[in-house]
Structures are given as C-alpha cells and as structure tokens.
C-alpha cells in the first residue's frame, strides 16, 4: 500500500486537498520511477498554467511612464528597443576654431564663446574635484557605512527567516513522524487483519465443506 494510492483515494474523496507527508512517505526511495512520473505530472500541470489572456481582476492596469516628458519618453523607447546610447559629442571640448578658413567675426565669436563655456565647465570640474577631495572620502565612508549596515540588517533578517523555515520544517517533520508512526502501526495492523481475514475465510470455506461432507455422512449413516 503506497501513499500514492492513499492520495488517489483521498483525492477522490476531497478533490483539491492533497495529503502527502514528505517526511514520512518514502515512495521515491522505494520506487525511483515514481519521481519521473511525478515530474511529468508537474510539467503537465505547469503547461496548463500558462498565462492566459484574462488577468485577474485585481491586477492593476499597466502604467505608461513619462507621458509628459518627451525626452524621457524617447529614452525609454530607446531602452525598450535596446538601442545603444548615442555617443556624446566631444568635439566642442577641443575648442575648435571657425570651420571656414578666414571665418567671419560671428563664427569667431561663437568659437570664443564656446571656449569660454568650456573653460567655465573646466572650472566647475575643478571645483567639484576640490570638493570631492575635501569631502569625498568622508562621504564615501558614510555611504559605505550605510551600505554595510543595510547588508548587516539584510543578513540578519535572512538568518531569522532561515531559522523560521527550519523551525517550520522541524515542526513538520516531528508531526509527520508522529503521524507516520501511527500510520505505520495501523498499516501493519491492516496487513495482519487482511491476512487473518483471508485465513479465516479460507478456514470457514474449509469448515463449510467439512460440514457438508459430515452432513452427507450423517445422512448416510441415518440412512443406514
């Protein structure tokens, strides 16, 4: 008698509840082919559970991001299309002169303005670097410290959760072992009863035959 049969029997009685006791049932070990069968069943079930068109009514509708911002929108599209980011225009950093060889005054002025802008940018960079030199290490340190704290917290909660899981599993195992013991004894008893019932039935049949023979004999004797 295997758990599978129990399952089927129970499944027939209460359709959705399955009643395996994994810490007690050892059908896999007794019959490795069962595992394949089970996996096949699972795969079949998973195949059935492919997403269908109709979502659960509780699932919220999809949101459209950056609807008001065309730049971000295009960027989002680019990312969705998995396009590489367009290369930055680094030309202006080289402070080019006017394109035409003598160049007009306008062109020269533009070039000069660009140069001034870049110089200003450079100054900003330097300012930033100076700031970074002053405060960078400390800021990084604080950042790292926060990260560390987070990591520690996460580790801790993970540990706790794992412990909880282990606890749950331990409970389950204990419970199942207890139930399993009962089941085992009951099963043994069941087997014994089956065999004894059979024996008694056989004995009854034999006795009935004997009775028949004896009654016939009696009749014979009486007839004599």
């Amino acid at each position: 008698m295997s758990a599978m049969e129990v399952d089927t029997s129970s499944a027939s009685s209460s359709s959705l509840i399955f009643d395996s006791l994994p810490y007690y049932d050892n059908d896999y070990e007794q019959d490795p082919s069962l595992k394949d069968r089970a996996e096949k069943l699972i795969a079949k079930e998973l195949g059935k559970a492919q997403p269908q068109g109709d979502l659960h009514p509780r699932v919220p509708p999809p949101t459209t991001l950056f609807s008001g911002n065309p730049v971000l929108e295009t960027e989002m599209k680019r990312i969705e299309a998995q396009q590489p980011f367009p290369p930055l225009d680094t030309l202006r950093y080289q402070l080019p002169g006017p394109t035409s060889s003598p160049g007009t005054q306008e062109e020269w002025t533009t070039a000069l303005n660009n140069a001034k802008a870049q110089l200003e940018h450079q100054r900003l960079r330097q300012t930033n670097i100076a700031l970074l030199q002053n405060y960078g290490p400390n800021a990084w340190r604080i950042h790292n410290y926060l990260l560390e704290a987070t990591s520690k917290n996460l580790d801790k909660s993970l540990e706790e959760l794992k412990e909880l899981t282990v606890e749950v599993n331990r409970d389950r195992k204990n419970f199942q072992t207890r139930i399993g013991n009962q089941l085992t004894s009951l099963e043994t008893r069941w087997t014994e009863l089956i065999s004894s019932v059979l024996q008694i039935e056989m004995a009854n049949v034999a006795l009935e035959g004997e009775m028949e023979r004896l009654s016939k004999k009696e009749a014979d004797l009486a007839a004599m």
Binding site: S9, S10, I17, D19, L21, I179, L186
Partner: peptide, 21 residues
C-alpha cells in the same frame, strides 16, 4: 510555502490516520 504545507499537513495527516483507522 512550507508554512502552507504545514497547515495542509496538519489537516491531512490526521485525516489519513482516521481513514486508515
């Protein structure tokens, strides 16, 4: 998952026992 399993088992286990009994 295991918690759900536990709940389930706590219900089914006795049932199996009673059925067998």
């Amino acid at each position: 998952s295991f918690s759900i399993l536990r709940t389930n088992e706590s219900a089914t286990g006795p049932r199996r026992v009673s059925a067998l009994q």
